[in-house]
Structure formats: C-alpha cells, structure tokens
Design a protein around this nucleic acid. Structure first.
Lengths: 219, 219
DNA sequence: TTGTTTTTGTACCGTCTCGCATAAATTAGG
DNA sequence: CCTAATTTATGCGAGACGGTACAAAAACAA
C-alpha cells in the first residue's frame, strides 16, 4: 500500500492536495460508518444500499475507495482490530497489576459492546465473523488470527504476573489466558443479546478472581 | 400446535395414514438438513434454493411444512436446542462427579462442533444466531434464553457438587456456571475457525481444573 | 482559457431473492 | 367408480441484489 509519488517522497500524513475533484468523505469515518452497518446486520444481511446510506457515499465512490462489499467488510474488521489493540495497549501505560489490568480490559470491552445502551451491539468480530467464516477463507483466517493474538497477548501478561507472584507459580499461563479470552467471548455474545452491564461486570469480576486466585495462597 | 381430530383423539405418535398424497420427506430429517445449510452459511447467507437442495424438498412443500425462511430457521434452532439438551441429560444418567460430567460435556460439544473434521462447523446457535440477533427479536430472545438456560442448568449441577464438597464451599455457583458456559462459548467459536480438537480438549481440561480446584483444598 | 485528473451522481444491467399461484399426482373415503 | 384431501412439481413475478458504465462536476497544471 505504498503510494508512488513522482519525484519527492512526501510525508504520507495528510494526503495533501491531490489533482482532481476533492473527495467529500473522510475514509476512516466512512469505514467506521460501514462497520456500524455490518455490526447491525452482519455481512450477508447488510445490503450495498444500506452501506451507501450509512457512509453517505454513493456507490461508485464506495467501490473506488474500498473495493467490493467483501473487501470493505475485511477493512472494517481490520480497523476494529487496530482500534481495539490500541485501546488495550493504553491500559498498560502505568504498568498495572494483572488484576487491575483485567478489570480495565473487560470494562473497556463492555463500553464498546454495550454502546448505544439497550440496542446492544456485542463484539463486532465475534458477532458477525463466525457466521461468515465457513464460506469465507479470509474472514476465517482473520478471526483465527485475532483469537490467537488475544490469547498470546494475555498469556504474556499473565506470565509476567506469574513471575511477580500475582498468579500461582504452578499455573499454566497460556491456559489461564485462554480462560481470560473465553470470558471476553462470553461477554461478547451476552452483550449481543442484551445482558445487563451489571451482570457482565459481575461475570468478569468472578473470572478475574478465578484467574488471580489461582494466585499466591488461598485456603 | 394441537392437532384437531374429528371425533376420537388418536395418539399423535405416527401421524397415521392421512387423507391425501403421502409426503415424500421426513420432517425431522428435512429440518436437520436445513440446519446443515444454515450452519454453513448463516441465516442471511443461505438462500431458499440452497435449502431446497439441502432438504430435497421442493419450494412449496418447504413452505407448507415449516413456513417461511425465518420460521424454518427458528425451528432448526429449537431442534438443535432440544437435541443438545437431551444429549446433555444423558450424561447425567450415572450421576457422575462434577469433574467427570464437565469432561463429558465438553467432549460431547466438541464432537458436534468439529463434526466433519476440518471444515469445522462450530456451535450452530453461537455461530449463526448472533449475526441475526440485532435485527431479529425472536432470534435474540432464543439465544438469550438458551444461554440463561445453560447457565442455570450448570449452576444447579455445580451447587449440588458444592454441597458434596467437590467445589469450594465458599464458591458462587452461578458465577462458576457462567465461567463454564464461557468455556463452552469459546470452544464454540474456536471450533468454527478451525482450532484442533487436541487444543480445545486441553482448554476444556484447564477450565475444569479451575472450576473444580476452587474445590476442597489446593495449596 | 484549455486540458488533465479525480470524485460525484444517475441510471442501469443481469442475476438472484423470496414467496406464491396453479395444476398434476397420489392417496383415502364413500 | 367418483369426490375430497393432501403433497408434489413447474414456473412465475415483483422486487432487491451486487456491481458498473457514463457523463457531469470540481479541483489542479499550464
């Protein structure tokens, strides 16, 4: 995706002024709006007309910018992953204990999954990608990679916590990480069908207890 | 759904011989085939033509038997739930310890989720219903009810195990049940994207350890 | 001004969608 | 036999689907 420039390599930041008619949409904002449409209806259940309305773009512009419906969906998935990871990394800024991090982690997820209150959205990828995964290699690969990524990210954190004594010395960090991911998955699905924030916070707290109480002592 | 009979209430078992041309399909078998089609493509991603091919029925027969596409989908979901619950209850026949039951429970799930080997299917409801849930009240209600049902079923079992001393006396049975359900959810999604049986069995074993090792002792 | 480049807007294409109308086929009742 | 009841089979129709062709519009370059 490197952009060729005639002579001087300009900083790719603002795309500067290009030659023709200026575009009337902001690509990232449009992608977010498209994701909102897919978020509601899933890939197969969302029509191009709905995407046109959601993005405010017209159909040819949509194609020129993001390719066909399938490519557009993949780009919204990647954007979601990018944003999610960035948000998660911010939670580590002050190098918190595992228990604190996990609490923030699930709180942050809930904030996204239950945005909009009662017309709950759930997790974008977990809610929409599985239905598509069996007939769509790219989506399946994305989701597989995404889950493994979460596992190994959490496994690293848990392993460090284990070495600090916040988790039982004998614990299997990867196994605990998979339980932590499992907790995220169930929160994702439960949000989608309207579970309350309170209930899901309690669920997360119980999972954190279980993971971190496989900790130092405990009678 | 009570069937009116002229005078005598016949046993509804075999549907007996009815008046007109006999049907050439077995309703439950057709429902299973339809579920297979939805299982692959999701609700919105599966066309009536595909359902016709899958069931071997022709279109008007499909409508006469199950109603429109949406009703058909709901009926496949209910059938899946019915079958799953029956299968689960069988696991309790010899009144096994919690740890044994949970092992069987996840093994049974894996058997279904990974039927067909590498073109993995995952859990039918978890893989297809969430995508539909935001635009379909009936599907959302079904999935919500299904999850709560699993929670409370497992909570009952765990509570009994707790009273037998197989789980820590101080444990919250419902919270542990939700973790057990979470484990089922993550296995459901991971199967859908092709995780290996071996990996998922290990994950289940770790979760069982965590749940049951919130048990009697443990240093 | 006159070209060049890029995006926009409209309109359209062929295909597929779901659901149903209608008639033939096959059974039981009388 | 004839009639009633039920399922099968063919096929259609109105609309939605994804995707694109084409020309107008709006910027820059010269």
């Amino acid at each position: 995706m490197v952009q060729k420039r005639s002579k001087v390599a300009k900083p790719e930041g603002d795309e500067q002024h290009r030659r023709g008619r200026p575009r009337q949409y902001d690509p990232d904002h449009a992608l977010a709006k498209a994701a909102g449409a897919f978020w509601k209806g899933g890939f197969a259940g969302t029509s191009l007309d709905e995407l046109v309305v959601a993005t405010g773009m017209n159909r040819p512009s949509l194609y020129a910018a993001f390719g066909d419906k399938h490519e557009l969906y993949l780009k919204t998935l990647e954007r979601y992953q990018r944003k999610s990871r960035a948000k998660t990394l911010e939670l580590l800024a002050d190098d918190p204990p595992l228990r604190v991090f996990l609490t923030r982690f699930y709180d942050g997820a809930l904030e996204i999954y239950r945005a909009g209150g009662d017309d709950a959205r759930g997790c974008y990828s977990i809610s929409t990608a599985p239905a598509q995964a069996t007939v769509d290699t790219a989506v399946r690969a994305f989701l597989q990679d995404s889950i493994r990524g979460t596992d190994s990210f959490l496994a690293d954190l848990i392993e460090k916590a284990r070495q600090r004594g916040e988790v039982a010395a004998a614990a299997n960090s990867l196994a605990l990480a998979q339980i932590a991911t499992a907790t995220l998955h169930t929160i994702a699905v439960r949000s989608r069908v309207g579970a309350s924030r309170k209930e899901l916070k309690a669920l997360a707290a119980a999972a954190i207890d279980l993971i971190c109480r496989a900790a130092t002592s405990r009678g």
